[in-house]
Amino acid sequence: MQGIVTKIIPFSSVDGPGNRTAIFLQGCNLDCKYCHNPETRKRCINCGECVKNCPAGALSMENDQVHFDPTKCVSCDTCIKTCPHDSTPKASPMTAEAVFDIVKKQMPFIRGITVSGGECMLQPEFIRELFILAKDQGLGTLIDSNGTVPFGNYPELLEVTDGVMLDIKAFYDDEHKFVTGGSNREILENATYLGENGKLYEVRCVIAPDLYDCEKSVKATGEFLLPLYKHHPFRIKIIAYRPMGVRAEYSDMRVPTQDELSGYKDMLSEMGYEEIIII
């Protein structure tokens, strides 16, 4: 089957351990205020607005569909900036085989692949097909997810998945709804399910002090996860909100200080967590 692929980064140092090829899938079911790639949120509706604006002639309309020619693209991102619909004309349908052909070019320099998004778990069957191909070549497989889709419904996908990197963007549901537009009930259940099954590789907390009580949330998240951590350790990433790529209305929020971030790290290490990374 085909997945809607936003982009593929051949060498990534920030999408899991070691060097990995990162595959980003289009479409997301949350609406985080600090989203740094809002163009990955929705699928293209072929309105053609970007075709009019592209300065390089890389976009055209063919049979009422936006067509993207990567050879002409100058990566100026005008299409993304002018899209009225939080999408990108660069996302395209690809089979798992076609994606894996691109992944293979990076071997033996990579230890694995990471599927991210958007919210990649909106396309679970595509990920499974891709991971089967990766496992067959001895590559590691990680999913980067917002946790809104229940992993328990996809045991066959988890069989070929080394681990999941899960966002817990706020612990208390009212705050989570304010930050992301959605409830975190399913996300916390997913954390439990993945933790109990040894598939929780990493948990991420995004620190955006203007949006919610970060200290209270990090503390509660740490306490909630501790039994799972003792069962099967995972790492925690404390990610600072940064304005890069963020939609204009949310791009002037306060960036947390290094001291604040270190304070959260210290709090978690006092609870017993060992691998805590500040980004």
Partner: peptide
């Protein structure tokens, strides 16, 4: 950013 992921460089050396 790679300071936090030295394995990235390790993988490149091994592959190379």
């Amino acid at each position: 950013t790679v300071h936090r992921n030295p394995e990235y460089v390790m993988d490149i050396i091994k592959g190379a």
